[in-house]
């Protein structure tokens, strides 16, 4: 097993765990969304890692290289990033709305049961 891959997987696991911990404990809605972004990043990194091949290069036709990394995860990550951006943009808008109604981003409980 390649060291790069190992390190990358470790980072992925850490990012996801940190993000999850943030979502589970933070009250500030902004922080929750930041945590979610962290998780998103983690998953993106994971996709890249899955497609990574030790010694491979970017999948663009090039006579000098015989080994390419898996191109598909890269395409997926492209999509995933854009989706992440969109969700974040909308999240920010919702937070602005929330803030304009409540004057704070701390969630102290509202609708329940």
């Amino acid at each position: 097993m390649n060291g790069v891959i190992m390190a990358s997987y470790f980072t992925v696991a850490s990012l996801l765990s940190i993000g999850l911990y943030g979502v589970m404990t933070k009250r500030n809605l902004m922080k929750i969304f930041i945590s979610l972004s962290i998780m998103d990043t983690g998953v993106n990194l994971m996709l890249i890692t899955i497609g990574y091949l030790p010694g491979g290069t970017a999948p663009i036709e090039n006579a000098n290289f015989a080994k390419y990394v898996d191109p598909l995860p890269q395409a997926l990550v492209l999509t995933a990033i854009v989706i992440g951006v969109s969700v974040t943009a909308l999240a920010l808008v919702l937070l602005i709305k929330y803030h304009s109604k409540k004057g704070t981003l701390e969630y102290k409980g509202g609708m329940k049961w």
Partner: peptide, 22 residues
């Protein structure tokens, strides 16, 4: 408030979906 809750859980869910797909 509902939308924010929906969004948080939905984003978490979509992260997990992507994870599963990966």
């Amino acid at each position: 408030e509902g939308a924010i809750k929906y969004m948080i859980l939905g984003s978490l869910g979509s992260t997990f979906i992507l994870m599963g797909i990966a």
